[in-house]
């Protein structure tokens, strides 16, 4: 059993930024299209900003409003696929025998976004990069709970962009639009949550009947809990079932 608090959170997707936006969308999910809105990275210098692609803009656009300038905070950056569109473009370049762009290569690694974030904020606190096929958010919460033993607060950022069409046949539950959920886990303040492992493992949660979901079901469930639309959610991981519950204080 793990107890923690969520001090603050921010989620970003095209046209969705405020808590209210998400609350409305979760109750009536619409197709999300278009560019990322005003989640521009104004605090970041233009020379550094040019290095951010859609994935980075999304992740850092969600994370930046949660932290104060000059504040040091360890962070966990979790993405299932990382910048797969960029990686694919590099692979295609190799296929055409073209020399690889050093910038492209440096930004295709899984911890590229967290690296840019730490450079932009001049924060040398520890950064953990998580990649998980299953239970990305749960894995992030477990990692963060561990880090809370030595740090009072941990910034978590969960983010993904749609996979290039080439990969669609190989992957379930892909993101249909770029999104990022950033939150600060703390032992000091914020709404209280409890994470428990269920004694009996249950059948895997069914993904919606039609097979269509707007967003990864885990991300949807987590956003519902953050917005207060629900008070409990289940995660499945390695055949185990977990529950995250809002604790009323």
């Amino acid at each position: 059993m793990l107890d923690f608090q969520v001090e603050s959170w921010m989620a970003v997707a095209p046209g969705l930024e405020s808590h209210g936006d998400w609350c409305n969308w979760l109750q009536n999910p619409q197709v999300v299209q278009g560019d990322l809105g005003s989640a521009s990275l104004k605090q970041i210098s233009p020379m550094l900003r040019r290095r951010f692609g859609v994935l980075g803009k999304c992740a850092v656009g969600a994370a930046l409003p949660l932290v104060n300038e000059g504040e040091n905070i360890p962070s966990i950056f979790a993405s299932r696929h990382g910048d797969t569109p960029l990686t694919l473009s590099l692979l295609e370049g190799i296929g055409r025998n073209e020399p690889m762009s050093p910038t492209g290569f440096s930004l295709a690694v899984h911890n590229a976004v967290s690296g840019l974030f730490s450079i932009a904020r001049k924060d040398v606190s520890g950064v953990t990069a998580v990649a998980a096929v299953e239970g990305l958010i749960l894995q992030t919460l477990l990692e963060a709970s561990g880090q809370l033993l030595t740090s009072g607060r941990v910034l978590c950022v969960v983010y993904d962009v749609p996979l290039p069409a080439l990969y669609h046949g190989y992957c379930e539950g892909v993101a249909r639009f770029p999104y990022a959920i950033a939150f600060i886990l703390s032992h000091k303040k914020g709404k209280r949550y409890r994470l428990m492992q269920d004694k009996i493992s249950r059948k895997k949660l069914a993904i919606s009947e039609s097979g269509f979901s707007h967003l990864d079901p885990e991300a949807m469930g987590f956003l519902e809990i953050l917005t207060g639309l629900s008070t409990e959610m289940r995660f499945e991981l390695n055949g185990r079932s977990w529950r995250l519950r809002r604790v009323c204080s």
Binding site: M47, P99, S101, P102, T103, S106
Partner: peptide
Amino acid sequence: LCLDSIDALEIGLALQK
């Protein structure tokens, strides 16, 4: 212009191309 080391590599590649 305040370029950095990655920019140097990128310019090197462009000069070669």
